[in-house]
Design a protein around this nucleic acid. Structure first.
Lengths: 188, 188
DNA sequence: TCCTTTTCGCTACTCCAGTCGCGTAAATCG
DNA sequence: CGATTTACGCGACTGGAGTAGCGAAAAGGA
């Protein structure tokens, strides 16, 4: 099933995403101009819009390329596992410029397809958190009265809240406090 | 202490904010064009920019005008108080178009002054939540091991998280589940 | 080889945010 | 009164997102 016409230049996608990444590192999200990306990649602006229908989707593709597999093997210590998972999510969020996260959030709210991409990006990790919580409940390490999905929200939601709304720092101590507040005090 | 030159036209502010509100209702945040707002208000665009340095701040002012005082008198039932406070916050968030909240968030991340305004908008309610939690702890109704500020984040953060990130619904049952998960099961 | 199909580069365009400079209107001060 | 100060309207401008149309290039098929 070979397509008919002129084939797409295989190098374009990589060159454009590289150029977009370089632009973002150099100037931040706002200043990513599709015109400049096109120029840097040696490609016409229209070619970019033929592949990615908006700047937001272009940036999404750029981010998605970064996402490596996140290895995680659950131990039998939910406290440790949760701390590790939440720390990983926090680290990923903090590694990106805040304005980028905020702009992607806005783009996700505006365009459902971007929203899907963003959610897909996190799905794996959030599922892992949910699984650890459910396991902790069946093991009796966590009171069973709460909906695991709510607990996930209470562990992950505050990260976004601090990052996007209050601007307060997200440090290891904060992550520990979150897990602490969720699981109750350490019992040694 | 009367200022020197030509006084500002007192009607301008109201007319512009009314026009902006009308534009937002008619078309949504994206489509609020400062040019159209200016035309609708019968005012030059430059006059708008003299008062509000960016479109985001203009919209902020528009929102701030909506915020009435939020009456709240604490009872001696923290569960009830928290439910009421969080429900109020959720209702306010849900009353606004999601894209508007997301765009304001992005604007807040980009421009510190907008961030200040947004935080000021919520300060009163968040302080009330913090106070209720602290009171519940001293009363022994809530385990004292958690930092009240963290608990606030865990009550309020999930609202933003659902609204902006996962897109899941925020209904009364969810708010109850949040409070429930925080305070522990009802003891009757 | 010629025809069709698809990609690509290019130019030109619309719309919007935000800025600048100018002429003028409305106030105060002397 | 005139001089000064500030607000305002107006028009022109920059730069960026996204679109439209055209001609040329690169493939496959007859």
């Amino acid at each position: 099933m070979v397509p008919r016409g002129r084939p797409r230049d295989a190098g374009v996608e990589g060159r454009v995403l590289d150029a977009a990444m370089a632009e973002m590192r150099a100037r931040g999200y706002d200043a990513i101009s599709v015109d400049r990306v096109a120029e840097r990649a040696g490609v016409a602006k229209t070619t970019i819009y033929r592949r990615w229908p908006s700047k937001a989707e272009l940036v999404m593709a750029m981010i998605a390329r970064l996402r490596g597999g996140v290895p995680f093997d659950p131990s039998d210590d939910p406290r440790h596992d949760l701390t590790e998972l939440v720390t990983g999510i926090a680290a990923t969020l903090e590694a990106l410029p805040t304005t980028l996260v905020a702009d992607l959030t806005a783009a996700a709210a505006r365009e459902p397809r971007v929203g899907e991409s963003v959610r897909a990006l996190w799905a794996e990790r959030h599922a892992a958190v949910t699984a650890v919580i459910a396991q902790a409940q069946t093991d009796g390490l966590l009171p069973g009265h709460a909906d695991p999905r709510v607990v996930v929200d209470q562990l992950v939601g505050p990260l976004y809240y601090r990052l996007l709304i209050t601007g307060e720092p997200i440090d290891p101590a904060y992550v520990r406090a979150l897990v602490h507040s969720t699981l109750g005090p350490e019992q040694s």
